[in-house]
Design a protein around this nucleic acid. Structure first.
Length: 570
RNA sequence: CGGGGCGUAGCGCAGCUUGGUAGCGCGCCUGCUUUGGGAGCAGGAUGUCGUAGGUUCGAAUCCUAUCGCCCCGACCA
C-alpha cells in the first residue's frame, strides 16, 4: 500500500476532547474519528488494526472448537421480558419502537438471543456441548462514555456462549476458553493478567477477568508476587491475621465533639485507626444493616452484597442513620443499640482489642471495648478491600500488590440462570427434560485496540505490537520526487516485501523527510526502512525498529532475515 | 443522576470583564525556494462566534432558555 492511496489524516495538535493517551494518539494518528459521545468511526488505518484483533480472536476461537455465527443487533423486547432483564437492566439498555409500536432494544449482550436459538434448535444431550460465538457490535447507553474507545457506547465485542449437560462439561469448555484467551492476548503482544473475578448476583461457580496492565486502567487488580494468585478488587481476599494479644483495659466513654471521621477520631483519642472499629450503615434490599470494619479498612459494597445475600447494597443516608440508631453518622456503634439491627463484622474488625467505636449518641465514643467482654461477637464476613502489602490468601509467604488494569476479557460460568428463566432444556439419556448449563465468554475487541496503545506508546506516538500494527513495515522514500532511483528502489523493495507476505506502507508522498518520519512514528509501524540516495549509494537499507533509537544499515539478506525473525510465519 | 468546565475557521486557542460588526498559530490553496526529524518567503480562501429568544441604535461580548461536548463524583460514618 502506498501512503498516497490510504487516507490517514494525522494531527499535529492533540484534540482537546482527548484525555487518555490512547485516545489522543488514535485521534492524532488518524485511526478513529468521533461522531458523537461514545460513538466512533473507524478510519482506514484504525480498521486495519481492528481487523488484526478480530483475526487473532477468530483464529483462536475456531481453534478451540467454537462456531462462529452472527446475531442481530436489534432484539425484540419479549425475550428480555422473559429473562427478566427488560426491567432489571435499566437505562443502559437502549429501547426503541418499530413502526408497529413493538418494543425492541439494541443488544448490549446476547444471552437472550442465543438462549432463544438454542432452545428452539437443540433438543438432545447428543447435540451438547456446543459453543457459539460472534464478533459483533454492541450498544450500551453508558452513563458516562469516556476515554474514546475505552468506554464507548457502541463497541465491538466477541461474545461466546456455551451449553452443557452438566457442570463437568462446562468446566472443560471454561478451561478451554481460558486457555484460548491466554493465547489471544499473548499473540497480541499485550502484558496482561488473568484474575479471579466476582460473579455478581448471577452466581455460578467461576469467573475470570483478563486485564491489560496499564496505569490508566479503571480497575484495581490484586496479585501475589510469590504465587499465581490474582483477583480483582471485588473478589480479592487476604491472609487472616492473628488476633491482637493486648491485655484488656477498662472500657469507658469519651466526649468527642465535632469528630466525624476515623482520622479525626484517631487523632483526638491518640490512638491508631487500626484500634477503631468503624460502623457503616447500609441499606441492603431495603433493610438497614450495620457493618463493622477496622478503622483503617475500606468497605467493599460488592462483598457486602454477597455476605448479606442482597441484590442492592447502598450506604444509608444521614436521615436513615438517625432514625435507625438515634445517633448521627460518625457516632454510631454496635454496642447498646436501641433498636435491633442486624450486625455483620469484617474478620479483621473482630481481631481488634481495646477498640474505640461510636456510642450511639452525638459527640460520644467508646474506648477500650473488647469483644465478648463488652459486647457479643457479631457474625463475621469478608467485607473489606484488600490493601497492598496484605498477606496472600493462597501461599504462606507472598504479599499482595495492587495494580491498575483495563478489562479486555471475561470468562464466566453462568450455570442454569438463563436455562431456567428461558426454559432451555434438552432430553437426557433417560428421555427426561433437563435444564442446560451455560457459560459465556467475552472479549472487548475495540477496547483491546485502545488498551494496546495505553501499553505501547512513547513521546513520538504509538509503538504497536507487531500483531496489531496496521502495517508491519513502513518504507520512507526520501525525496522520491527528485530521485527516480529512490522512487524505483523503494517501490521495488515494497513489492518484494509484499510478495513475501508482509504488509507494507510505502510513504511516497511529496513531503519533507521530517514530516515523513513524524508520521511513521506517530502511526507506530514496527519496522521502518529508509530509502535515500545516500543509502542506495552504499548498497544497503537503513533499518530502524519503532521501539529502537538507532538506525542499522542492513543489506537485503540481512534485512529479510531480520524481518523473518520478527515475524515467524506458519 | 450530582458537581465543575467548555462551545469563536478543519485542529489548537485569543477576544467576552468594560457591547461598536472577529483575530493568532497549525492545517488548507497558489507560486518560488528548500529537502534526513512536523521548512522559509510571498500571496490567498475559509466563520450563520453551538442554537433560539430577549435587552440595545448596535451583541461573539449582557440576560434567558436550549442543545452539544469534556472532566470529576456517585466510597467509609
Amino acid at each position: 500500500m502506498r501512503a498516497s492511496q490510504i487516507f490517514v489524516p494525522t494531527l499535529k495538535e492533540t484534540p482537546a476532547e482527548a484525555e487518555l493517551i490512547s485516545h489522543q494518539l488514535l485521534l492524532r494518528g488518524g485511526f478513529i474519528r468521533r461522531l458523537a459521545s461514545g460513538l466512533y468511526t473507524w478510519m482506514p488505518l484504525g480498521l486495519r488494526v481492528l481487523r488484526k484483533v478480530e483475526r487473532v480472536v477468530r483464529e483462536e476461537m475456531d481453534r478451540s472448537g467454537a462456531q462462529e455465527l452472527l446475531m442481530p443487533l436489534v432484539q425484540p423486547a419479549e425475550l428480555w421480558q422473559e429473562s427478566g432483564r427488560w426491567e432489571q437492566y435499566g437505562p443502559e439498555l437502549l429501547r426503541l419502537r418499530d413502526r408497529h409500536n413493538r418494543d425492541f432494544c439494541l443488544g448490549p449482550t446476547h444471552e437472550e438471543v442465543i438462549s432463544d436459538l438454542v432452545r428452539r434448535e437443540i433438543h438432545s444431550y447428543r447435540q451438547l456441548p456446543v459453543n457459539f460465538y460472534q464478533i459483533q457490535t454492541k450498544f450500551r447507553d453508558e452513563i458516562r462514555p469516556r476515554f474514546g474507545l475505552m468506554r464507548g457506547r457502541e463497541f465491538i465485542m466477541k461474545d461466546a456462549y456455551s451449553f452443557h449437560m452438566d457442570h463437568a462439561s462446562l468446566e472443560i469448555t471454561y478451561q478451554t476458553m481460558y486457555e484460548a484467551y491466554q493465547r489471544v492476548f499473548t499473540r497480541l503482544g499485550l502484558n496482561f493478567r488473568a484474575v479471579e473475578a466476582d460473579n455478581g448476583a448471577i452466581g455460578g461457580k467461576r469467573s475470570h477477568e483478563f486485564h491489560v496492565l496499564a496505569d490508566s486502567g479503571e480497575d484495581a487488580i490484586v496479585s501475589c508476587h510469590h504465587c499465581a494468585y490474582a483477583a480483582n478488587m471485588e473478589k480479592a481476599q487476604s491472609r487472616p491475621e492473628p488476633a491482637g494479644t493486648e491485655a484488656p483495659l477498662p472500657a469507658g466513654q469519651v466526649q468527642t465533639p465535632g469528630i466525624r471521621t476515623v482520622a479525626e477520631q484517631a487523632e483526638h483519642l491518640g490512638i491508631s485507626a487500626a484500634n477503631i472499629v468503624k460502623t457503616v450503615l447500609v441499606v441492603a434490599d431495603g433493610k438497614i444493616v450495620m457493618l463493622l470494619l477496622r478503622g483503617d479498612d475500606e468497605l467493599n459494597l460488592i462483598k457486602a452484597g454477597h455476605a448479606l445475600d442482597a441484590q442492592n447494597v447502598q450506604l444509608a443516608s444521614p436521615e436513615e442513620a438517625i432514625s435507625a440508631t438515634g445517633a448521627p453518622l460518625g457516632f454510631i456503634g454496635p454496642k447498646d443499640l436501641r433498636l435491633p439491627i442486624p450486625i455483620m463484622a469484617d474478620h479483621r474488625a473482630l481481631g481488634v482489642a481495646n477498640f474505640s467505636t461510636g456510642a450511639n449518641a452525638a459527640e460520644l465514643h467508646w474506648i477500650n471495648l473488647n469483644w465478648d467482654r463488652d459486647l457479643p461477637r457479631p457474625e463475621a464476613a469478608d467485607l473489606r478491600n484488600v490493601r497492598a502489602g496484605d498477606g496472600c490468601p493462597h501461599c504462606a509467604t507472598g504479599t499482595l500488590s495492587i495494580r491498575r488494569g483495563i478489562e479486555v476479557g471475561h470468562v464466566f460460568q453462568l450455570g442454569e440462570l438463563y436455562s431456567k428463566s428461558m426454559g432451555i432444556t434438552v432430553l437426557d439419556e433417560t428421555g427426561r427434560d433437563t435444564p442446560v448449563t451455560m457459560g459465556c465468554y467475552g472479549i472487548g475487541v475495540s477496547r483491546v485496540v485502545a488498551a494496546a496503545v495505553e501499553q505501547h506508546f512513547d513521546d513520538r506516538g504509538i509503538t504497536w505490537p507487531v500483531a496489531l500494527a496496521p502495517f508491519e513495515v513502513g518504507i520512507v522514500a526520501i525525496n522520491a520526487r527528485k530521485s527516480p532511483e529512490v522512487a524505483a528502489a523503494a517501490q521495488a523493495l515494497h513489492d518484494r516485501l509484499e510478495a513475501q507476505g508482509y504488509s507494507v506502507l510505502l510513504d511516497d508522498r511529496d513531503e519533507r523527510p521530517g514530516v515523513q518520519f513524524a508520521t511513521m512514528d506517530l502511526i507506530g509501524l514496527p519496522h521502518r526502512i529508509v530509502v535515500s540516495d545516500k543509502v542506495l549509494a552504499q548498497g544497503v537499507w537503513e533499518y530502524r525498529a519503532r521501539r529502537a533509537t538507532e538506525n542499522v544499515l542492513l543489506d537485503e539478506t540481512q534485512l529479510m532475515n531480520h524481518l523473518c525473525k520478527e515475524h515467524p510465519r506458519g
